[in-house]
Every structure is written in C-alpha cells, then in structure tokens.
C-alpha cells in the first residue's frame, strides 16, 4: 500500500515535470515570443497608462495599469494555454496517450501550469520592470512576504480555475473554446485589471471576487501602493479568501475532471476530433 502510494506520487511528479519541460522548451525553441509576448504587450498596456494621463488621473494609477498588464499575461496563459489545451491535445492525438497513462489528469494540468507560470512570470516580470522604468512608477511596499503570499495564492487559485475550465474541454470542442473567448473581456472588467475593483460598486466587486484575480490584484495593489486607500477588504481577509478560493477551485477541478471524463467516455467524445 505504502509502495503503491510512493509509486503513484513518483509517476505523477515525473509526468508533471515532463509536461512542464515540454512547455518551457517548446516556447524557447522559437524566440518570437520575446517580441510578441513581452514587447508588444507592454505597448498595449502603455495605452491604458496614456488613457489615465489624458484624463489627468493621479500618477499612482499608472502603477495600477502596469500591475493589471502583468496579471493579464497570467489570465491569457490560463485561458489559452492551459484551459483550452485539452482541445489542442485531442487534436494532436496526445490526449488519448495521456489518458491511457497511469497518471492523474491533475498531474498533466499541473505540469502545464508550472511550465506556463514559469514562462508567463518572465513575460509579466519584464513587462513590470520595463514599464516601471519607462513610466517612473514608485512602489511603496508594506510587506514583501505578504506580497509574495498574496501573489502565490492568486496564481494557485487562478490556475485552479484554469483546471476547472479544462474539464469542459474533455467533453466539448468549440463550445468550450468560445466560452473561454467569452470570458476574456468580462474578466478584465470585473477583476479591475486597470482600476481598483471597488469602483464597480461594493456588491458587484464582491460578486466578482469569485474570480481569483479580483481579490489577488486588490491585495497586491494594497501591499505595493500602501499609501493609497481604495481596498475592497483588508489584505488579511483577501489573502484568506484567496486561500479558500484556491483550495475550493482545485477540489472542484478534480471533481469536474473526473465527472467530465466519465461523461465524455460514455458519449464517446473523449477522442472525438474536430468537434
């Protein structure tokens, strides 16, 4: 029993590492991403900086935008390189090979998440550093450990949400794809990528807190712009909320993956290409 558990642990860790390796090596094999994923998004984010400047907004808002721009990279990664990845894996004949292997589906997704996070952190980090230099943003960090904690919990919850979405792709094809597409802009709006989420009104902001980015960005903004007052909840509450969200989403993802896989196998859609 103990050996079995050890074997399961080893095989799942190895599978996750291998999947993450593919993601990282695959991206780095073509350097076009440096231009398309780092420099160009910086310009896109800069547009919102100039919007605030055109409105004569306080300079601190520039920092909001940069942080939002950096988190956009993670949101895009979760939506398009993780949640929808089963769609492409099925098309590329790989999905069935993962599914006949003695590993948890969460291990494959964790591998994609780790690989994706690694590459996205480089992109988001460069955007933040370059943007801060370019627009002379001043951060007033109140607690580095809390920033790290809030950030890590945000990513755990966000990628948990990605895993939950990916279960849809076991069953559906373009329906799931368009659902991802549909979520892109509303989440930009509801999570307050470019403004403090409180501006949406207290009740809408609370409803939007189901999206991990909402609480995550609000917490990180509070911690790195500690001289401003715009919070939805105190940082400690938001961090606790992120912890609950992370655990809840990961659990929901595991259950949903299991159920969707079963349903897909019953309907014969698990290996059905060109859906």
């Amino acid at each position: 029993m103990k050996t079995d558990l050890k074997w399961h642990l080893r095989v799942n860790v190895k599978a996750a590492i291998a999947r993450a390796y593919v993601r990282v090596v695959g991206t780095n094999r073509e350097f076009s991403w440096i231009f398309f994923d780092t420099l160009l998004p910086l310009l896109g984010t800069a547009a919102y900086v100039y919007v605030y400047r055109a409105m004569d907004a306080p300079e601190e808002y520039v920092g909001f935008v940069l942080l939002g721009g950096a988190m956009t990279a993670y949101w895009m990664n979760v939506l398009w390189n993780m949640a929808s990845n089963f769609y492409f894996e099925r098309q590329g004949w790989n999905l069935e090979l993962y599914f006949i292997a003695p590993i948890s589906r969460m291990a494959i997704l964790a591998g994609m998440a780790i690989g994706g996070m690694f590459m996205t952190t480089i992109r988001a980090g460069s955007l933040l550093v370059l943007g801060s230099m370019l627009f002379n943003v001043r951060f007033n960090v109140s607690s580095v450990p809390l920033v790290v904690l809030a950030f890590v919990l945000t990513l755990v919850a966000l990628y948990g949400l990605g895993m939950l979405f990916s279960s849809l792709f076991l069953m559906y094809g373009r329906e799931a794809w368009h659902t991802s597409n549909l979520l892109q802009e509303p989440v930009y709006l509801l999570s307050g990528f470019y403004f403090p989420v409180r501006a949406l009104g207290f009740y809408i902001a609370i409803a939007a807190s189901i999206i991990p980015l909402t609480l995550g960005m609000d917490a990180v903004r509070q911690l790195v712009f500690s001289h401003l007052h715009f919070s939805l909840f105190p940082v400690q509450v938001e961090i606790a909320g992120l912890g609950v969200l992370g655990a809840g989403l990961l659990y929901a993802a595991a259950v949903a993956l299991d159920r969707m896989e079963r349903a897909a196998k019953q309907e014969g859609r698990l290996t059905l290409r060109w859906q």
Binding site: G26, W33, F36, D37, P41, L43, G44, A47
Partner: peptide, 20 residues
C-alpha cells in the same frame, strides 16, 4: 513561419496599435 504560440501575436500587435 512561426510556431503555434505566435497565434496570439495579433492581439499583441493590436495592443501596440491601440497605443500608437
């Protein structure tokens, strides 16, 4: 001539055009 991950380049280019 680029790999699949270039597929979202259009959004990045659109972002740059949004600014410029």
């Amino acid at each position: 001539v680029v790999a699949r991950h270039g597929g979202h380049a259009s959004e990045a280019v659109a972002g740059a055009l949004f600014l410029l």
